[in-house]
Amino acid sequence: MSEQCMPSIEALRDFFAATDAGDLEDAAVRIAESVGVEIPPHTDWTTVEYEFNRLFVGPAAVPAPPFASAWSESDRALMGRATSEARQTYHRLGLAVPGEGVIPDDHLAYELEALLVLKSVLATEAGAPDAETAALHAWFVGEHLERWLPPFMQAVREQATEGGVVALVTEALAAWFDNERNSTAALRPA
């Protein structure tokens, strides 16, 4: 996928932060547009909502919890080291999750928003980007996200309806992540 047809991080963030069918539709349409893919015709957004909840929200045990901690540690629990990493990254950016501790800081939507901040900071800096901010970006993508996004996306691929909206979004996320990883690879120490 070329740079032009990268999904917008905002739209990915909004998809994973969705609370109902309307949110999902709004975000998915934007994602599909940005990557030049068609939303399957006759998509029933309430059915997408059911699937989204089955995979990511509950109330039944979720096969793909959208939290870094669930995939980054030796065991499957939230609020672990990966959560603290995310929290500290936000703090370094002068940000925090509202009501810290209520929703684990390493929810995918928060992490995508943090990425958005990092990239904007780098893009708005005049001249050569600040090396440390660039390193933080590279670390967040190449280590923090790298640890959990691939297994997370794999779980979604195994569980999501083939050709459905969640699968489509997951492929968009995968493409974005691949690109992001490649573009930051040079900055990561060998």
Partner: peptide, 25 residues
């Protein structure tokens, strides 16, 4: 190093954030 080394606080005010809120360091 990473935790100590960086502070780009304030950057957030430039962005239309939806989920994260400002944090004093």
């Amino acid at each position: 190093q990473f935790l100590k080394g960086l502070s780009v606080a304030g950057a957030a005010s430039l962005l239309p954030l939806r989920l994260l809120m400002p944090y004093s360091a």
